[in-house]
C-alpha cells in the first residue's frame, strides 16, 4: 500500500514521460497485481471446492492457457506499436488446417508441414504489416479485412474442416510429459522466457516501445518504423500460427473456425496485463499474467456451473474490475 502511494506520487511528478531508469518497475506492477488476483481466485475457489487448486488442476489450467499465452504475445507486440491484430483467430485456424492438411495423420510430412504453416501464418502477418506500414491503412480495418479474406480463401480451399487427423507426434507432444511436468507446460515456460527476452531484453524490443509511445519521434531518431511494423505483424501472425498448430495437436484435428473464440481474449489479456491500446506501454510478463488470469477465471466459472448468461456477466464484470484495480493510480491524476 505504502509503495503504491509513493509510486503514484512518483508518476505524477514524472508526468507524461516516466523517468528512464524507472521504466520497467511501474510496468511490472500490473503484472504482479494480476498474478496476485489469479492466485486469489484459485485460493477462493479452494474454499468452495477442496479438490480445486491441486497440482493437476494447475497444470490443466496451464495447458489450456497455452494457446492464449502464445497468441497474445503477438497481439501484445502489435498493441505495443499502437496497432491491433484482429486476424489472429483466422490465422490460428489456418495454421491448424495447414498442419492437418499436410501431415494427413502421419509424422513423415511434419518437417515440411511445420515450416510451411509457420511461413504462411507469418506471411499473412507480413501482409497485414505492409498494409499498415506502407499503405497506411488503419490496423483495425487492415487486419479485420485480411482475416475475412483469408477465412474466405481457407473456406474455398478446404470447405472448412480438415479431412485428416494431425500428425501423431504433435498429439503426443500436447499430451506427453517430462520430469513430471506436461510437455506443454515446459513449452509454456520456455516460450514465456523467450518472449520476455525478445520484448523486454533486446534492442529491437526497446525500439518498439519508442515507436509506440511516439511514432513521429521514432522516425526522427532514424528507427526503421516501416520494417519494424511489418516485423511486428509478421511476428503476430507467427505466434497465431504456433498457437493454431498447438491447438490442432491438442484436439488432434483442425477446423477453420477453431481460433475465433480466442481473438477477444488475446486483446483482453494484453490490456489487463497493463498495456495501453495506444501503444508504448506494457511488458510481456503482464500479458502472460493476463492470459493466465483469464484462463483461471474461465475455469472457475466452469466449476461454478452457472448459466451462460451469468457466466458472461461475471466474466465481463471481472475484466472491468481488473481494469479498475490496476488503474486506480491513473485515476488519482484527475
Amino acid at each position: 500500500m505504502q509503495n503504491k502511494q509513493t509510486a503514484a506520487i512518483g508518476e505524477t511528478a514524472g508526468h507524461e514521460k516516466p523517468v528512464r531508469r524507472q521504466w520497467l518497475r511501474p510496468d511490472a506492477r500490473p503484472a504482479a497485481l494480476v498474478l496476485l488476483a489469479t492466485v486469489a481466485l484459485i485460493v477462493s475457489m479452494k474454499l468452495v471446492n477442496s479438490d480445486f487448486g491441486s497440482l493437476n488442476q494447475l497444470t490443466a489450467i496451464l495447458i489450456t492457457s497455452i494457446f492464449l499465452v502464445v497468441a497474445s504475445f503477438g497481439q501484445g507486440l502489435v498493441i505495443l506499436t499502437g496497432g491491433i491484430d484482429l486476424s489472429i483467430g483466422v490465422v490460428m485456424g489456418i495454421g491448424g488446417m495447414i498442419i492437418a492438411g499436410m501431415t494427413r495423420g502421419s509424422d513423415d510430412m511434419l518437417v515440411y508441414a511445420l515450416p510451411t504453416a509457420l511461413v504462411c501464418c507469418a506471411g499473412i502477418g507480413v501482409i497485414n504489416g505492409t498494409g499498415v506500414a506502407v499503405a497506411k491503412l488503419p490496423p483495425f480495418i487492415m487486419t479485420l479485412s485480411s482475416g475475412t479474406t483469408f477465412f474466405g480463401i481457407g473456406l474455398a480451399l478446404t470447405a472448412g474442416s480438415s479431412q485428416q487427423p494431425v500428425a501423431p507426434a504433435l498429439q503426443k507432444f500436447m499430451s506427453g510429459s517430462w520430469l513430471g511436468l506436461p510437455l506443454p507446460v515446459w513449452f509454456l515456460i520456455v516460450f514465456a522466457v523467450l518472449a520476455t527476452l525478445v520484448q523486454n531484453g533486446t534492442a529491437g524490443g526497446r525500439k518498439l516501445y519508442a515507436m509506440g509511445s511516439s511514432p513521429g519521434a521514432a522516425r526522427v531518431l532514424g528507427l526503421p518504423t516501416t520494417m519494424l511494423t511489418i516485423a511486428v505483424y509478421g511476428a503476430s501472425g507467427l505466434c497465431a500460427g504456433i498457437a493454431g498448430i498447438l491447438l490442432a495437436g491438442y484436439s488432434s484435428s483442425a477446423t477453420l473456425d477453431m481460433g475465433n473464440a480466442l481473438l477477444m481474449p488475446t486483446i483482453a489479456a494484453v490490456v489487463i496485463g497493463g498495456a495501453r491500446v495506444t501503444g508504448g506501454a506494457g511488458i510481456y510478463l503482464g500479458t502472460l499474467a493476463g492470459a493466465l488470469f483469464l484462463s483461471t477465471l474461465s475455469t472457475v466459472i466452469t466449476i461454478l456451473s452457472l448459466s451462460q448468461g451469468l457466466r458472461s456477466i461475471i466474466q465481463g464484470g471481472i475484466i472491468i474490475g481488473a481494469l479498475l484495480l490496476q488503474s486506480s493510480r491513473s485515476a488519482q491524476r484527475h
Binding site: 471446492n49 479438490d51 493437476n56 497444470t59 490443466a60 466449476i303
Partner: peptide, 9 residues
C-alpha cells in the same frame, strides 16, 4: 479444454 479443467477439479 473444458473437460480437462473439470476433470482436475
Amino acid at each position: 479444454e473444458e473437460v480437462a479443467k473439470i476433470l482436475a477439479a
